[in-house]
């Protein structure tokens, strides 16, 4: 429609700004408030000034199991927490669906798997999951100290449930965090998350 282009510009001198309320890559990550498995409240804004990793989790999902059985996720959690990154695991599984655990069960599972996120947040009604458009488990997000969403997507580039693939894969999360922590400029980007669907209500 070449005809109307310049005319449209004439007619509509004010542009439309499509401002989505959901998480957009490169934009401010939406704030949220969730309770963790110890009953403590966490907001994204509490962690302003730090890099924050959001990890959507469902321990019943074979893709999540791949990264926990291989100790990949635990290693990442420990490594980056040591470097000052805040790691928040979030479960958006609805009550009665796969991956939904009571607070006590969560703490027991975390202990058993030696998983040590800063907090395991319970998003039972899926509000935050939908706010971030979390599609799969695992689905990873990286937020910079200014609260901008730098990365949204898969944990790594090999779609599989096979533990052996972990070592061969290019891990987007660790590569991005390494770059960010060494002061490199990272252009915000996204990949397609892979895994089980998030078990929303």
């Amino acid at each position: 429609m070449k005809v109307n282009l310049s005319l449209i510009i004439l007619v509509i001198t004010t542009g439309f700004i499509i401002a989505g309320s959901t998480a957009q890559i490169g934009e401010k990550a939406p704030d949220f408030n969730l309770t963790d498995s110890n009953g403590k409240q966490h907001s994204l804004s509490d962690y302003k000034g730090k890099y924050v990793v959001l990890e959507w989790v469902n321990f019943g999902c074979p893709f999540v199991q791949k990264h926990y059985n291989s100790k990949n996720m635990q290693t990442l959690q420990k490594e980056y927490r040591d470097k000052g990154v805040v790691w928040l695991s979030i479960s958006s599984s609805a009550s009665g669906k796969q991956g939904y655990l009571s607070a006590a069960e969560i703490n027991e599972t975390l202990k058993e798997k030696s998983s040590q996120p800063n907090a395991y947040l319970i998003d039972e009604d899926g509000t935050v999951g939908k706010l971030y458009d979390a599609k799969a488990t695992p689905h990873m997000y990286i937020i910079d100290p200014d609260g901008n969403l730098i990365y949204n997507g898969a944990i790594d580039n090999i779609r599989s449930t096979n533990v052996e693939d972990v070592a061969k894969a290019h891990n987007y999360v660790s590569k991005t965090l390494d770059a960010l922590l060494t002061g490199e400029k990272v252009e915000p980007f996204s990949t397609e998350a892979y895994g089980c669907s998030v078990k929303y209500k």
Binding site: M1, N4, L7, L10
Partner: peptide, 16 residues
């Protein structure tokens, strides 16, 4: 359809 658009926009353009 693009003619209809063209007509509409040339008319608007004329007004402007």
């Amino acid at each position: 359809t693009s003619i209809w658009m063209a007509i509409l926009f040339s008319f608007l353009g004329g007004i402007i």
